[in-house]
Amino acid sequence: MPVVNWVGNQEKPDQAWLAGGIQLISDTSNPNGRLDHIAIITENLEKAVHEAVIRGAMIFQKGPSWIELPDGLVIELIQQAGSEVDDFLNVKVSYVP
């Protein structure tokens, strides 16, 4: 999902908004400056895990749908049950220019 807006340095923003309405916020109380993990619904779980791994992610200790990116960010990938991804991508948000 592309970043559509951010606060702070573009390379390391304090906040970022992704297409479809996801907002990510840096946790400044965490000495590592990151969240525990984020969860993302995907249309094809196997393909998403495969694509992440060939780009440098590793399967995380919690299970095969959990990945850790090279920078340490942990992502839980969740298989959609219906049309959740399309529904989410069609959400109109008021703060996008």
Score class of each variant (00 low, 15 high):
residue 3 V to A: 08
residue 6 W to M: 02
residue 6 W to Q: 08
residue 6 W to H: 14
residue 7 V to C: 00
residue 7 V to T: 06
residue 7 V to L: 09
residue 8 G to A: 05
residue 9 N to M: 04
residue 11 E to A: 04
residue 11 E to Y: 00
residue 13 P to L: 06
residue 14 D to P: 00
residue 14 D to V: 06
residue 14 D to W: 03
residue 16 A to I: 13
residue 17 W to L: 11
residue 18 L to E: 11
residue 18 L to S: 06
residue 18 L to F: 10
residue 19 A to L: 13
residue 20 G to N: 05
residue 21 G to N: 10
residue 22 I to P: 07
residue 22 I to S: 14
residue 23 Q to P: 01
residue 23 Q to G: 09
residue 24 L to D: 07
residue 24 L to E: 09
residue 25 I to C: 06
residue 25 I to M: 13
residue 26 S to N: 08
residue 26 S to Y: 00
residue 26 S to W: 00
residue 26 S to F: 02
residue 27 D to N: 12
residue 27 D to W: 01
residue 28 T to V: 08
residue 28 T to L: 06
residue 29 S to T: 15
residue 30 N to F: 09
residue 30 N to Q: 06
residue 31 P to H: 08
residue 31 P to C: 12
residue 31 P to F: 12
residue 33 G to N: 10
residue 35 L to I: 13
residue 35 L to N: 11
residue 37 H to Y: 07
residue 37 H to T: 10
residue 38 I to V: 15
residue 40 I to M: 08
residue 40 I to Y: 01
residue 40 I to L: 12
residue 41 I to D: 05
residue 41 I to R: 06
residue 42 T to E: 11
residue 43 E to Y: 01
residue 43 E to A: 11
residue 43 E to W: 00
residue 43 E to T: 14
residue 43 E to C: 03
residue 44 N to M: 05
residue 44 N to T: 10
residue 44 N to R: 04
residue 45 L to D: 08
residue 45 L to Q: 03
residue 46 E to A: 14
residue 46 E to I: 10
residue 48 A to V: 09
residue 48 A to W: 02
residue 49 V to G: 03
residue 49 V to A: 02
residue 51 E to F: 05
residue 52 A to Y: 03
residue 52 A to F: 02
residue 53 V to C: 04
residue 54 I to E: 14
residue 55 R to C: 02
residue 55 R to S: 06
residue 55 R to F: 00
residue 55 R to N: 10
residue 56 G to A: 04
residue 56 G to Y: 02
residue 57 A to D: 08
residue 58 M to N: 02
residue 59 I to A: 01
residue 59 I to M: 02
residue 59 I to W: 00
residue 61 Q to P: 02
residue 61 Q to K: 10
residue 62 K to G: 01
residue 62 K to I: 06
residue 64 P to V: 04
residue 65 S to H: 11
residue 65 S to T: 12
residue 65 S to N: 14
residue 66 W to G: 04
residue 66 W to E: 07
residue 67 I to K: 05
residue 69 L to N: 11
residue 70 P to L: 03
residue 71 D to R: 06
residue 71 D to L: 01
residue 72 G to L: 04
residue 72 G to C: 07
residue 75 I to L: 07
residue 77 L to Q: 04
residue 78 I to C: 06
residue 78 I to Q: 03
residue 78 I to F: 08
residue 79 Q to C: 14
residue 80 Q to W: 09
residue 80 Q to D: 09
residue 81 A to H: 05
residue 82 G to R: 13
residue 83 S to F: 14
residue 84 E to V: 05
residue 84 E to W: 03
residue 84 E to K: 02
residue 87 D to M: 11
residue 89 L to T: 13
residue 89 L to R: 15
residue 89 L to K: 14
residue 90 N to L: 09
residue 90 N to G: 15
residue 92 K to G: 09
residue 93 V to N: 13
residue 94 S to Q: 14
residue 94 S to G: 11
residue 94 S to F: 14
residue 95 Y to Q: 13
residue 96 V to L: 15
residue 96 V to T: 13
residue 96 V to M: 10
residue 96 V to Q: 14
residue 97 P to T: 15
